[in-house]
Design a protein around this nucleic acid. Structure first.
Lengths: 204, 204
DNA sequence: ACGGTAAGTGATTAATTACTCACCCATATT
DNA sequence: AATATGGGTGAGTAATTAATCACTTACCGT
């Protein structure tokens, strides 16, 4: 009886994310997590020293997923335009598959309770924006994007668009398909990135 | 001794918002609020029946502020373009002046603890997007904006941009001047709304 | 067979926290 | 002068919850 340490650890993290999506971070007690996993409350502490360690592990898991996503994107040798589209789609799919992520990321418990976790989140965001601005700069050099946009500024807007969309989705209880909204987001982004002669083609 | 009911009520709400900005929603206990106001913890309950009633009042206050902002914007008889700029500036100034607002609005305690408050927030967002799409539609009709953008879609992106920016600002602990970022946001938005012949003028 | 280790449990504890209650006291009303 | 009222208080309560602990049980290598 009893699963091995690493396996149960993963299970606890996953169930924690599930619970965060359904009940919100406030209801995320060790008792609730234990119930969901199907073990006693005290058993939680065989695998995590403190409750915050669970959150920490969850955030690190999320960071890992997003870093993987970023690496895969930059490994793709497709055009800058397709890289951005790929990034939007994959990002939204990731959030769609694990709805607890936005709830956790947006909760203040993370940022204010432990400075270390806050730094992790900030680092992920910073690296994210760096990659996006690199892609945009490349697109400008290759004459695929207009040359009068500022790459850093546009990258910040890119991330803001994504986060804002996810936030609205979360506030409206995941009640609309977010992948579809991603397409609208891309259309909007493209209308600001596209060189002028190409626009007629894409406006329909 | 003792301020009149309505006055103290307002004071509690204001101090609650202050605390939310500094300490986060998690630390927002009745004790902390009472300390900040300078009264005993039990006195809080002379003015609010429950702790949630304080949150409720705070959210309603926020909603009021934003509704006022929206009404003022539509009352302005300036061009659609200036209306959008005005809305961005005023919105960011409001958030800048009361940093507790984003913390409260993004906290899950609001949406998940009480369905009523969630509805309030959703209604504000819905009305916000309606107004923005109206402005955009008007701008298209007056040939100030390109005619191949979808007003509703663009309005959703407008709100996402704002929310995303505020979220990043909140995650980075209000460490950069948000009004300045608002200008970048407008530049980005305008590059997607501007008719083509006008662009050369504004690109610098 | 045996001893060690790792996962699991129930009972308990200490701290936090929303909320109540009996009681004060100043001011306004009668 | 008597009294009612409203803002204020300190002490206390019940509930929640993270964390501990003594103990059990299953499994593994020797």
């Amino acid at each position: 009886m009893g699963k091995p340490h690493e396996e149960r650890k993963e299970e606890i993290i996953k169930k924690t994310l599930e619970l965060a999506a359904e009940e919100g971070v406030t209801r995320l007690t060790t008792q609730a997590i234990a119930d969901r996993v199907g073990i006693a409350q005290s058993t939680i502490f065989k695998h995590f020293k403190t409750r915050d360690a669970i959150f920490s592990a969850a955030i690190n898991w999320i960071s890992g997923q997003i870093f993987r996503l970023l690496e895969e994107t930059s490994r793709e040798s497709t055009s800058p335009r397709e890289q951005l589209q790929y990034l939007i789609n994959r990002h939204l799919t990731l959030m769609s598959r694990h709805r607890g992520l936005p709830r956790l990321l947006f909760s203040d418990r993370l940022h204010l309770e432990s400075p270390h976790l806050k730094k992790t989140v900030q680092q992920v965001m910073a690296r994210y924006m760096t990659l996006v601005s690199d892609i945009i700069r490349e697109g400008i050099e290759e004459d695929q994007f207009r040359n009068d946009v500022d790459p850093e500024e546009t990258a910040r807007c890119f991330v803001a668009l994504l986060q804002g969309l996810i936030l609205r989705w979360s506030i409206f209880d995941f009640s609309f398909p977010i992948e579809k909204e991603g397409e609208a987001l891309w259309r909007f982004l493209w209308s600001s990135l596209a060189p002028h002669q190409e626009e007629d083609r894409d406006s329909l």
